[in-house]
Simulated assay, not measured.
Amino acid sequence: MIHGYTAVGNHQVEKLVVPDSRDVAQFIFFEVAAQFEDFAKTMFQMEVRSKLRVTAKRSCFVMGDLDGGLNNKLGWGSPKLLRERGSNLFGPDSFFGDLMHEVGEPTYKALMSAHTVRNRIAHSGGTAQERFVKLLESDGIASAERQGLSVGRYLREYPTGSTVNDRHFNRFLTAYETFAARAEAALP
């Protein structure tokens, strides 16, 4: 899918209907968010191994808990939790402890928003829904416009007035790429 089109034959493309293109954007974003979460966990593990000089196996118990290691330890895609865990384990001057400064405030905020969107896709109501609505409010989306606003539409069509390549979908992917580049440069 490129800009809402899909290949249907030999050098032929067909435009997806709007609801389908929104669904595709949502599914792709959710998969990318999952990959980001796994990458962030791996990079956190690299900081644990490097700073504490422990094996890969032992690092799981340092990052998780003494009994289960990383089993049932979630939240590796949350910049807030990554920062708190990094600060608690390594102090505020570590890569993760100073995550906002390490990746820059705009990227950090985009990562926070991306995590909110990821959670809204994964969970249909409750806190995930409330945080998504607050994100829409903070983006200045009017109440009437928020009614029934799907995650896919938010990713593909907002912010309004921006170019096709500068919508939330692209902004979040750029934030993930920035995080990856800075983490790889800072960590062994």
Rank of each mutant, 00 (worst) to 15 (best):
M1F: 08
A7V: 14
A7P: 05
A7S: 06
V8Y: 02
H11S: 12
V13N: 05
E14K: 13
L16Y: 02
P19F: 00
D20Y: 04
R22Y: 13
D23A: 04
V24L: 08
F27M: 12
I28T: 11
F29R: 05
F30S: 15
A34R: 10
Q35H: 12
A40S: 11
T42V: 12
M43S: 12
F44M: 15
L52E: 07
L52C: 08
V62I: 15
L70M: 14
N71C: 04
N72G: 06
N72E: 12
L74K: 10
G75W: 03
G77H: 05
G77F: 04
S78D: 15
P79H: 00
L89F: 00
D93G: 06
G97V: 11
H101E: 14
H101C: 10
V103Q: 00
P106D: 06
P106N: 03
Y108T: 11
A110Y: 02
L111T: 02
S113G: 02
H115M: 06
R120N: 04
G125R: 03
G125E: 03
G126A: 08
A128H: 05
Q129D: 15
Q129K: 15
R131W: 05
F132A: 11
L135H: 07
S138H: 08
D139T: 06
G140P: 09
I141N: 05
I141E: 03
A142F: 01
E145K: 15
E145L: 14
Q147F: 01
G148S: 04
G152R: 04
R153P: 04
Y154N: 02
L155W: 05
G161R: 03
N165V: 07
D166W: 08
F169D: 03
F172S: 00
L173R: 04
T174S: 07
A175G: 06
A175K: 06
Y176R: 01
T178E: 09
A180G: 03
A181C: 07
R182D: 05
E184V: 12
A185Q: 15
P188M: 09
